[in-house]
Design a protein around this nucleic acid. Sequence first.
DNA 1: CTGCTAATTAGCAATTGATGCGAATTGCGT
DNA 2: ACGCAATTCGCATCAATTGCTAATTAGCAG
Lengths: 135, 135
Amino acid sequence: MRSPAELTQAFRQTGLKVTPQRQLLFGLLHGNTSHPSADVLFALASEAMPGISLRTVYQTLNDLAAMGELQSIDFGTGSARFDPNVTDHQHAVCNECDAVHDVRVSRAPKMSGLEGFDIHDAHIVYRGICADCAS
Amino acid sequence: MRSPAELTQAFRQTGLKVTPQRQLLFGLLHGNTSHPSADVLFALASEAMPGISLRTVYQTLNDLAAMGELQSIDFGTGSARFDPNVTDHQHAVCNECDAVHDVRVSRAPKMSGLEGFDIHDAHIVYRGICADCAS
DNA sequence: CTGCTAATTAGCAATTGATGCGAATTGCGT
DNA sequence: ACGCAATTCGCATCAATTGCTAATTAGCAG
């Protein structure tokens, strides 16, 4: 995801408006590696801007995802997780606390045995117990 | 997943009862490589046994999953998919029609860069367009 | 700076996949 | 054949997310 300043440009150029709510979310997401859910972002946003609507959080997240600035990923943890890191990487998910960590790995292996399937991308999810929960 | 006959044994040994509803689902799932959702299974089951409850379908699927006879997988397609193939394999999911295909691949690469994360398993999801939707 | 207009906000209703609950039913060991 | 615990199934409930819409606001043109 680009910086808040760059996103401001990009939004205006697309005909989208840059509201205080959106600027707040830009800031909360930029450089965030915690893979927050909409709920968590809503809680964080509410601290800085009481009264902000959960609906608005979803709206902005969807806008950012549509622009390719972040990815919405479903790890089966009950709610979608949002990742402002759109570079090629993988994830490790804790079975205990549902924490999501970024993982650097060599690319996923080529698949075989499926004729005519046009692969757009591959995603690896490692599951296990994170360092915090292991103690 | 084991054969209906073997499952019948296993269920009784665990103190679970083998009802006509369950036998029907055993049959529908055995050797099924279509990765059906609960909805789809309910539709199939309803043809053979009108009046069967969706609740019962979920119940039986959960029982089978708890016994390790099938896996419930969330591909983010809106509903959980059930896979009676519990051997090591991967999946390819069509972005158009949400079809899920089994894929034979070498194991997922070892991950690196995460200290103290105890990996239990890894799962690769390939996404793209299936042969049917490409035409 | 002012006004205009389309975009946005926010609250509530609605939707969807899945589970909790409980009365009536039924498998199955004795 | 009996009895009890497991099961079925319909309905209510829940959680995550989206639809709807009146009131507000960003941001452009003049």
